[in-house]
Design a protein around this nucleic acid. Structure first.
Lengths: 217, 217
DNA sequence: ATTGACATAGTACACCTGTTCTGATAATTT
DNA sequence: AAATTATCAGAACAGGTGTACTATGTCAAT
């Protein structure tokens, strides 16, 4: 979830996300030197310096006298749960805004805000990512402003998959059921009150298969 | 299903319980010397010796090369999961089907299917329950067939809350934003393309406030 | 009594790890 | 430009921490 405290520097954000990721995987907190190498910092003192700031800003608690004495606070603490999958929110999805390209291999979770979800919401997949919906343009997919769409990176969607696609000529992002019909693609809304559209296959750039939607109020 | 393990000695039981307790309180595992003093053992080697046995018997996993490299396994790990909230799916919500009454106090989670959700989806509340949506009648709330609606039991909704309500005369369940206007209730859909309705307050039976929606595909 | 597996003590060592110190660089303010 | 603050780099120290080693005690089976 998006943090709304005083803005953290990029390095502080990276460190915080690294700690979350580490604790999710290892059940014990990282050492200063774990963070140093994991975040590619050149000195332990820099880690210590930024940990002090993260503590002062209330993101974590330290027990200076003991090793690995880091405790995450607030929302950050959720990621200490085992079996949860940390999903990076890599960008927004809106009608006029291009869909961000996701490179599953090279992205670093530490660079994004993360949400921690149970496996049944991510199909157990490790490489699921999320997009935040801006605006009301996805209502025909039963998705509203502020919702989180969970996507599995996919190249070749199956007919019937709900996909996130970029329509090049319309300059529009959309969430619809995908059907390949010859050299055309038929896109069917999730909301049966809306009408399907058919466009040239070359005009459609699929970015991922929708595996879930999450909304909080 | 439970594997018949070899019985643990009193000291091993003590150590195992100490580790659980420690991790529950501190969010990081104890050191060998923490265990030594905490369990009143006279030597670190004795702790090490018993930890080897606990590992061999499958109660925990050790990362010998790192400090505090203890991970609880099996049932022992349950205490690490304490932050996940188990939400019972107490029934369905559909246009013609009455909303099930939920008695927060007496229900037994074991009687229902449960989903385990991270706190950010349940507002951290312990008594959230879920309803499975049947049919397409909730599309004006951006909720489709099969979706899971998360509800917090509530008696007196605030104006603007999204609530699950039963309209007595129409015999219809619905999800809408609630506004009390004198002796009437105005119900506004989440989907701005749909129209609000206004009904007599006595005709509306509110069952809970919607805190989230979850959809998997 | 002897043996051998199990369990416990005490001690010491080597590496892990948090911390501190000094200094340098970058960004921002005066 | 000068001053101030924020951030980073490198190195070194001190105590924390896992582990190894040896010795002792317990107890049942032989």
């Amino acid at each position: 979830m998006t943090l709304m405290k005083r803005p953290l520097s990029k390095r502080q954000q990276t460190i915080l996300n690294y700690i979350k990721d580490f604790m999710g995987k290892n059940s014990y907190p990282p050492t200063v030197r774990d963070i140093q190498t994991g975040c590619e910092v050149s000195s332990t003192s820099v880690v210590d310096y930024n940990l002090q700031i993260l503590q002062r800003e209330g993101y974590l608690q330290r027990r200076r006298e003991v090793s690995r004495g880091i405790e995450l606070l607030g929302e950050s603490a959720a990621s200490t749960l085992r079996n949860l999958i940390s999903v990076p929110v890599v960008g927004n999805i809106a009608a006029g805004e291009p869909l961000p390209l996701v490179n599953t291999e090279q992205w670093n979770d530490a660079d994004f805000d993360n949400v921690d979800l149970p496996p049944f919401l991510t199909k157990g997949k490790e490489n699921v990512f999320a997009l935040r919906v801006k605006g009301e343009s996805m209502v025909d997919a039963l998705v509203g402003d502020g919702d989180l769409v969970l996507l599995e990176p996919i190249e070749q969607p199956q007919n019937g998959d709900m996909v996130a696609a970029w329509l090049k000529d319309r300059e529009e992002a959309t969430l619809k059921h995908f059907f390949l019909e010859g050299d055309k693609v038929k896109l069917v809304p999730a909301n049966s009150y809306m009408q399907p559209i058919t466009v040239a296959a070359a005009n459609v750039s699929v970015r991922g298969r929708v595996v879930g939607v999450v909304r909080t109020m």
